[in-house]
Design a protein around this nucleic acid. Structure first.
Lengths: 266, 266
DNA sequence: ACCGATGGTTCAAATAATGAACCACGCTAA
DNA sequence: TTAGCGTGGTTCATTATTTGAACCATCGGT
C-alpha cells in the first residue's frame, strides 16, 4: 500500500449519508494521523478532487470528479459494459441473456447475447418494447421502484401476451413483495409462451432501477440447478454493472454472496 | 508538489480525444519515469480510478469516478440545477446553451442543451476543455476574476483557434473592461468559426467566478433581437444559478432587471 | 477563564518513492 | 530466421519524501 492509495482511500469515506467531512472526523474514520490527512486532503484539493465547504470547516468532493465522470461515460458507455455482462451471463448459463432499460413509462431491450451451446434458444430483438407486468425484467424493476411509478404502470391497461400473463394488479403486487424479498424476479411464459426468465434490477445513482439484466431459457430446459446458477450469476453481474455505471443499490436489496467478486490485478 | 498530486495529475491526460492511454504514452506525456507511472496507475487501478481496457494494453478511467460524481452531485447539485437553467436558456433562445466551470487553470464544459427549433445548431461535447481567451465563457470569467488569475492565464501561451481568435493580452484586457461594464461577454468565431457566443459568469460563495453560462448561435442566425433576448435570459439564469449553488455576485457586477427572476421556493 | 473541540503547522526519524537498467513479449522488416 | 524496436512489467540501491507526536491559534459552550 502506497501513499497514493492511502490518500485516495480518504475519498472512500464520502457517501450519501456523509457528503461532507471535517479534518478531525476524517482522521478518526481513517485511523490516520491528522497531519497526514491534512496533507492528503490539501493535495486532493489542489487537483480539484475535493474542496472546502462552508468557510473551510469541512471537505466535500470537488468538481474534477464531474469531468472525469463525463470522460468515463464517453469511454465506457453503458451499452458496451452491458454487452460484457451479457457475454458473461450467457457463458455461465449457456442461455440467452438480455438487458433492458426504463425509458419513461416503457421498458426497452437494448442488448442481448446468445449462447451457442444449444440448438434451441430464446431469441430476442434489440429495441423491442417489453411489458412491465409480463416480463421478469419488468417485475424486477417494479419491485424496487417508487410506489407512484408502480401505481402508474399498473393503472394502465395490462395487455395479455399469453395465457400465463398475470394481469391482476393485486396479484402482481403480491409477486412484487416476493421479488423484493428474494432480489430476483421470475416469469414463466408471461410474455412469450415457453420462455422461463429470471431477472434482476440495475440501479442508477439515485438508487432507483434504471434497467434489468435477464436470462431467458426455454421452459423445457429450465431446472433447479440452472436456476440457481443463473440467479447467482445474475446478482453478481447486476452488482458489477450497477457499480460500473456509477449506481447504488438500495439498502432493501437482499445481499447475495460476494464470493464471485472480480479480482483487481496489481 | 507531492507524490499524490503527481499521481493524480496523470488523470489529467485523459480527455475526449484520448480516452485510453498506454503506459509508455502516459510516461511520455507526463515526463515521468515509466516505472513511476506504472506504480501510480497500479495504485489508481487498485482504487478503481482507472482500469485496464482491452486485455490490459492501455488504461482508461474507472468506475469509481462515477460514484464520486454522484456523491458530488448529491452534495452540490450544480449539474442538475445547471441543466435546469440550460433547458430554460435553450427554450428562450431556441439555440444551444452550455455551462462550464473553472478547474484550476482550465475551463471545462460540463453540460449543454440543444434546441430542436432549428436544423442547424452549435454542437458541444461535455468535458471539452475551453480556452479562457477564445471563448465568451472564458472572457466572462476572466473579467470578474482576481488580477493575479488573469495575469497567470494571459502569461501562458494563448493558442490560436480560428483567424478571429484574439491573442494579444493588452487587447484582451481592454475587452475585459468592456465586459465588466456590461456584465456579458461576447465571442464571434474566437473559438470555433461561425459561432457567436454570449456568456455570463456564475459566482461561488467567495464572490469569485466558478463558471459561466453561455448561449452559442450560428453567426448567420444572430440578430440584435436574439442577442437582447439571450442576454436578458442569461443574466436572469446566472443570478438564479449563483443563488442556488450558494454563491454571491460581487458588487461590481452590473445589475440587470430582476423582474424575470423565477421563484423556486422549497 | 476554562475546557475541549476544531483546523493548521513544525521537525527529526523512518518509511516510501524514485529511476536506470533489466526482462519477456509481440510486432515489422530485412 | 533474425535483428531491431516497440510495448508492458519488474528489480534494487539510492534518495527524498512521507510520517506522526507535539505544538499553536482559534472557536464555542459551560
Amino acid at each position: 500500500m502506497g501513499t497514493v492509495s492511502n490518500a485516495l482511500s480518504l475519498l472512500g469515506f464520502f457517501n450519501l449519508q456523509r457528503p461532507e467531512i471535517g479534518l478531525s472526523d476524517l482522521a478518526r474514520l481513517s485511523g490516520m494521523n491528522k497531519a497526514t490527512v491534512y496533507r492528503h486532503m490539501s493535495e486532493l484539493a489542489l487537483r480539484g478532487f475535493v474542496e472546502k465547504s462552508h468557510g473551510g470547516t469541512s471537505y466535500r468532493l470537488g468538481p474534477e470528479v464531474l469531468r472525469l465522470a463525463s470522460l468515463r461515460e464517453a469511454a465506457v458507455p453503458l451499452l458496451s459494459v452491458a454487452r460484457e455482462m451479457l457475454a458473461r451471463l450467457s457463458a455461465a448459463t449457456h442461455e440467452t441473456s438480455h438487458m433492458s432499460v426504463v425509458q419513461g413509462m416503457r421498458l426497452n431491450a437494448i442488448a442481448h447475447h446468445y449462447s451457442t451451446r444449444h440448438g434451441t434458444r430464446v431469441t430476442m430483438e434489440d429495441a423491442e418494447v417489453l411489458s412491465f407486468h409480463g416480463t421478469a425484467s419488468g417485475l424486477a424493476i417494479l419491485a424496487f421502484s417508487e410506489a407512484a411509478f408502480v401505481d402508474a404502470v399498473l393503472a394502465r391497461p395490462l395487455p395479455v401476451h399469453t395465457p400465463h400473463t398475470e394481469t391482476d394488479p393485486d396479484r402482481i403486487r403480491a409477486r412484487l413483495r416476493g421479488i423484493r424479498a428474494s432480489g430476483v424476479a421470475q416469469s414463466v411464459g408471461g410474455f412469450e409462451a415457453d420462455v422461463h426468465s429470471l431477472a434482476v434490477p440495475i440501479f442508477g445513482p439515485d438508487r432507483c432501477p434504471t434497467g434489468a439484466l435477464a436470462v431467458a431459457v426455454p421452459v423445457a430446459r429450465m431446472s433447479d440447478a440452472l436456476a440457481r446458477r443463473a440467479q447467482a450469476e445474475l446478482t453478481a453481474c447486476a452488482a458489477d454493472l450497477t457499480r460500473r455505471i456509477g449506481g447504488f443499490a438500495p439498502e432493501t436489496l437482499p445481499l447475495q454472496d460476494t464470493s464471485a467478486r472480480s479480482e483487481m490485478t496489481g
